[in-house]
Amino acid sequence: MIWIMEILILTIVLICALAAIHVRDLLSSAILLGAYSFLMCILWAEMGAVDVAFTEAAVGAGISTAFFIGAIYQTTRRTKD
């Protein structure tokens, strides 16, 4: 709707996605994916798809971040490559 807001949120989404791939620390990567998920939720709510935004906020930003952190507990925080 408001095109300035859409472009602003899309830019931050792109920055979060690229940073989640390139950062070396796996815990930071999981947190950045949570931020990416929450910004996608804002974008969907702004486009009018409130139900999809609700699912994204509950599953993407809430549960899957907890699952990623639980999986990181079983391995090392630093990547080798």
Partner: peptide
Amino acid sequence: QGGCILGA
């Protein structure tokens, strides 16, 4: 969604 929040 409600089940996910309750599980969280």
